[in-house]
């Protein structure tokens, strides 16, 4: 099944990806992120044609708890965050919970 990449974020963030040919994108202006980002992310997650969601790591803070958890643990589509450290996107927390050790500690020092 062929899928596409989707980008969610501010217009500045998405423009570059559109230049590389990404067709699915949600533009949410910086000042409206608190209100509109939740809906944008939910819409993207619900889209069956999307295989990978690209977001800026900082934008995750604008999401409400439920949506944030949904997008972080989602496997289909997968979330890839940019601009954060190696343990971003909830992966670090999950490793801590499953293995019991914080394996990504040295990267953030």
């Amino acid at each position: 099944m062929s899928q596409e990449i989707a980008v969610v974020g501010s217009p500045d963030f998405t423009t570059g990806f559109r230049l590389a040919g990404v067709r699915k994108f949600e533009n949410v202006p910086e000042e409206e992120k608190d209100e509109r980002l939740d809906d944008a992310v939910e819409r993207t997650l619900a889209d069956d044609d999307v295989g990978i969601v690209v977001m800026h790591d900082g934008d995750l803070d604008h999401l409400s708890r439920n949506v944030r958890q949904a997008v972080e643990t989602s496997i289909e589509p997968t979330l890839v965050t940019l601009g954060g450290g190696a343990g971003s996107g909830g992966l670090r927390e999950q490793i801590k919970r499953a293995i019991g050790i914080d394996l990504m500690e040295e990267d953030n020092e």
């Binding site: 990449i5 570059g16 990806f17 230049l19 590389a20 040919g21 990404v22 295989g51 990978i52 690209v54 643990t73 496997i75 997968t78 890839v80 940019l82 996107g89 992966l91 999950q94 490793i95 499953a98 293995i99």
Partner: peptide, 26 residues
């Protein structure tokens, strides 16, 4: 810029593959 973003997309796809595998394994 377009070329740089194309390169970035390739890395993202690779990262998505590896990170999904990690999530599932976890």
């Amino acid at each position: 810029a377009a070329e740089a973003y194309e390169q970035l997309l390739e890395s993202i796809i690779l990262a998505a593959e590896v990170e999904t595998a990690m999530k599932k394994m976890l």
